[in-house]
Write a protein that binds this DNA or RNA. Structure first.
Lengths: 265, 265
DNA sequence: TATTGCTTTTCACATAGTGCAATCTTAGAG
DNA sequence: CTCTAAGATTGCACTATGTGAAAAGCAATA
């Protein structure tokens, strides 16, 4: 993710463009480069130019071409036949479904989600923290119009209530990464909030844009006391303190039940 | 296109155990091996032994170890700290969400799904075909108890109505792959159904196991006449012909609208 | 048709990935 | 508690294999 310039502290440049981290010994550069490309493809527009990817990755054009060619063969990457630009391929979706289908937390939560949705009357989400991002991995849609049903969400962690719950209660490293994926100006402002967020029984964020609804989120804690996921609900348009408390209480009840069913991870 | 012998056309064995396909020239073995491991990890149990993976992949143990080490570094693979076994990592989920968030079909369908769910009163799914598997990539849960809310589904394509729609109307190659991922005994039985399936306006499959509900599926066709996804609904427990017709009609209406909104892919 | 941007292929070189074999670690049996 | 075995790592020598520079296709635009 870090081209040759703007190198994070504590890294050592060994050869031209090659970078080695402490725990990266005995590691394959080709694989590192391949996933770097996947990372780059996951940012920005759906389909991107070879040249641009080469520049952003710091690799030579032919190398990037070969890497992408190889990834296309496995459908992890797709090449648009008309523009010959590259984008992520459908195989990533298959892998992810297989991964998620076997996540204990999701299995533990499944029975509670529909009843929760019915009782709150709002859309319910399950989110996890991945490399500084909140990823919404399960959802049960409420009755509301759903004009703004933005599905398959990935955000910078600190932008949403669920992400703040996860980042503030997660590992030191997770928090650091969450901070990294937010603008410098917000960083200092948000950076001081950690203790408050990690102590709160629930967090609320108001929808940033136009009609995006607010979100109420609670942690899901496993047998070791680790926060493994967040349970969130959208809030009705205008909401009183009491309503928020009641929604959070319902979420918490389900979260505890699931955490208990999960036992020690 | 009749195969000359039992051997897949156009394959050539170059070195010991190495096989090269026509379109695999100028391709990186390391990448091929890395995704092979991801493939293997996506099958079977969530966490698997290094030794076992080495055996199944045909690679040496140290090589597999280095590949996995590299993948772990990017969170595409996770190593269970206690058993030191390997499984898919959370990064695949993040990549997939980013991929799906930019799929035009899903955006086009989004506005219709909640109304559909409300009008049919059942869970509605969107499925796509990936390498012989049906992957359910979006869902809106209905009111029903949802005791069998099996989420994040991936099946052999020919096992479900949505998969049959997709495979039978897809490319020659897609159909072949779908056949491959089903037992030999079923293959001959299912293999003859293609024409019927691809002509039908909708397909129905009854839930295989105990209380798994039936599924009604219709194709979603883009401006080129290509079937790009399937729209499916679970059917109420006992269902008459008329009910099925009515559900299928509603699905088709949404499918056409989305296909139209999609225009030419 | 020439020009410009991009993608793809070729080629010679040495980087960097490979397998073997030795070492370390963990778990279970005695 | 030690001993043993199965599995996970690491070192090392070798060359297969991935690399960049440069040249060749390929499409658009003018």
């Amino acid at each position: 993710m870090a081209p040759v310039s703007g190198v994070p502290v504590g890294w050592a440049v060994t050869k031209v463009g090659r970078v080695s981290e402490p725990d990266a010994r005995g590691t394959l550069g080709t694989v590192r480069n391949a996933v770097l490309l996947l990372e780059l493809l996951s940012e920005g527009p759906a389909f991107q130019q070879l040249t641009d990817l080469a520049e952003r990755s710091g690799l030579s054009v032919p190398t990037v071409h070969r890497l992408l060619r190889s990834l296309v063969l496995s459908d992890l990457v797709e090449q648009d036949p008309t523009s010959s630009r590259y984008g992520l391929g459908p195989e990533v979706a298959r892998l992810a479904q297989r991964y998620l289908a076997r996540q204990p937390i999701l299995g533990a939560l499944a029975p509670y989600l529909v009843p929760l949705r019915d009782s709150i009357g709002q859309t319910v989400h399950v989110a996890v923290l991945v490399r500084g991002s909140v990823v919404y991995v399960d959802r049960v849609d409420g009755a509301d119009g759903g004009l703004y049903r933005d599905t398959h969400r990935v955000h910078a962690a600190l932008e949403t209530a669920a992400g703040r719950i996860l980042a503030s209660r997660g590992t030191e490293d997770g928090w650091r990464r969450a901070l990294e994926s937010v603008d410098a100006e917000q960083r200092s402002r948000l950076g001081t909030e950690r203790d408050g967020w990690s102590a709160a029984p629930y967090l609320v964020t108001e929808g940033g844009s136009a009609q995006e609804p607010s979100e109420v989120a609670v942690p899901i804690v496993d047998g070791h006391g680790h926060t493994v996921a967040a349970l969130a609900a959208t809030a009705p348009p205008v909401t009183s303190e009491e309503q928020l408390d009641r929604i959070a209480a319902q979420l918490s009840r389900a979260a505890h039940a699931a955490g208990r069913a999960l036992g020690h991870g």
